[in-house]
Design a protein around this nucleic acid. Sequence first.
DNA 1: CCTCTGATTCGAGAAACGTCAAGACAGCCT
DNA 2: AGGCTGTCTTGACGTTTCTCGAATCAGAGG
Lengths: 125, 125
Amino acid sequence: MTKQRTGTIPVDPTSAEPCCAPLSARRISHEAADRLAPAFRALGDPVRLRLMSMIASAPGGEICVCDLTPAFDLSGPTISYHLRTLREAGLVDAERRGTWVYYRPRPAMLRQLARLLAVDGTTGG
Amino acid sequence: MTKQRTGTIPVDPTSAEPCCAPLSARRISHEAADRLAPAFRALGDPVRLRLMSMIASAPGGEICVCDLTPAFDLSGPTISYHLRTLREAGLVDAERRGTWVYYRPRPAMLRQLARLLAVDGTTGG
DNA sequence: CCTCTGATTCGAGAAACGTCAAGACAGCCT
DNA sequence: AGGCTGTCTTGACGTTTCTCGAATCAGAGG
């Protein structure tokens, strides 16, 4: 039995439809809350927030795990666990090329979350 | 010894300085990650995401707990626990007026999170 | 004062999370 | 093939989270 590999995801947030008006515009639906909360939860850990930022701000649009791990005082498996959490939340994508594994952001999901948090008068802030 | 009451907060995210460029613009600092991750974590639960939306979209800018509780299949204390989590994350404010307690959103914190998630080309769809 | 209603805090238990060491897998190189 | 390096998975352990019932606090009103 072949286990799932890098990039395969149990629940598929790949289908990031352009969902959901801002929280302040109308009440979010029960289902949308169930679908989007995991993404916020994934960002709700300082390590993962930093990982997300390192990935999202990577110069070539992607970054090697080998460049992520040494930035933390954590074991390899722990970083791998956090990266998987980000992957399963639909926030990043992973691809193996030869020896190394590269991570990329998923702008669609980030946009969806940003839109949800948008406040009336954001431009004025 | 008087315990803390509604509105008093252990760690004070009230000082919501206009912090932090988008995640994709540069790497978030260690400290900013520590300070903002709790807010994302607070939104990382379906119940709290719905509560946040109900509060943020309340017609008069505020909503009574008595209108929040019946919307969920959860006990009063559980709703109260989630509301406190949102309060301590700096996402909402509470005020007691007579018998009832009213909750208001904190747009500054929401803006801060939205800005952090902003993606280059958000306006471009 | 006592009681009643609404909201929070306290105490406890089940489930999920974050971390690591050990092991497994994937791809290079000799 | 065999060894080496980089990454991920597994198993285990302590901590945190989520939930509830019971108790407590805050006001309104008899």
